[in-house]
Design a protein around this nucleic acid. Sequence first.
DNA 1: TCCTAGATCGGAAATATTCCTATTTCCTGC
DNA 2: GCAGGAAATAGGAATATTTCCGATCTAGGA
Lengths: 147, 147
Amino acid sequence: MFMCDIVARLKKTGIRLTPQRQEVLQVLLEGALLEERQPLSAEEILQKVRQRYPGISLDTIYRTLATFKKLDLVCEVNFRDGCRRFELMLQEEHHHHLVCLKCGHARELPFCPADCLARAQEHYPDFEIADHAFTVYGYCEKCRKSY
Amino acid sequence: MFMCDIVARLKKTGIRLTPQRQEVLQVLLEGALLEERQPLSAEEILQKVRQRYPGISLDTIYRTLATFKKLDLVCEVNFRDGCRRFELMLQEEHHHHLVCLKCGHARELPFCPADCLARAQEHYPDFEIADHAFTVYGYCEKCRKSY
DNA sequence: TCCTAGATCGGAAATATTCCTATTTCCTGC
DNA sequence: GCAGGAAATAGGAATATTTCCGATCTAGGA
Ligand SMILES: [Mn+2]
Ligand SMILES: [Mn+2]
Ligand SMILES: [Zn+2]
Ligand SMILES: [Zn+2]
């Protein structure tokens, strides 16, 4: 199972392993193992975690996500739907998304504009690139009929 | 001057040419003509418009931006700073951005991951692509020393 | 000039996110 | 195992962004 690997990795970083953090991790991991995985909002994560750990606060969700993001364990995406979304960053498979503007459903794009990143670095050699986002918007086959 | 061209273009679409809309357009146009142009938030646009048209409401800014966006006159970008940003879409020069996560300053990337768009369409042939976003995040030369 | 669909204003509401403080708890060292 | 202390949490308040709503106004066509 992945869970213990990640927990071990977290232990090495020195952060405290609270049950709250483990529950958030569990929810993210379950999401990552679905075939149709969707990045989750803080509120969605809250609801899922509360099924198993009812007392957790929204603030803890946000703080945990910020902590995990700093450790490169989760990444943040923005789909123009008014909230930030998060998903586990499984190092081996960096990817981007294709998002329906009507129903919000996200599909994965298993490739990356790496050449554009390189060109960006050439254009601005003194800029330290930390991250990037590529998202394609439009209408899925279901929604294009009705929008 | 560009202003009258765009006004003419707006007239053709059939929308009403209110003074509020013209002032918002003016502010966007002034921003687009600067050499260091930065996409503007609704609040920033409000402040600039109010210097010349004090009574305008924030709601009108948002509605106007939505209207202009629908007409492909402005485009929306998201820089992970908690608000949406807008800039005039001058058709000839589609571009993307490089953004400093510390100071928020944006630079333009005069190229586009067109090949990735094409691959996305191949991967999902039934998806109707409407738009895309590519943004590079990091730290500018000033900020990388201190973060 | 008149009419009216469409636009605006101002304030309230809805959302998303962060802040604050008292309290709790994980972990280290004994 | 136990105590101490730094770090984390809960819950509620505060902040920020965006949307909604009803009353009023107006751009533009007849
Ligand atoms: Mn994904
Ligand atoms: Mn730009
Ligand atoms: Zn859809
Ligand atoms: Zn900077």
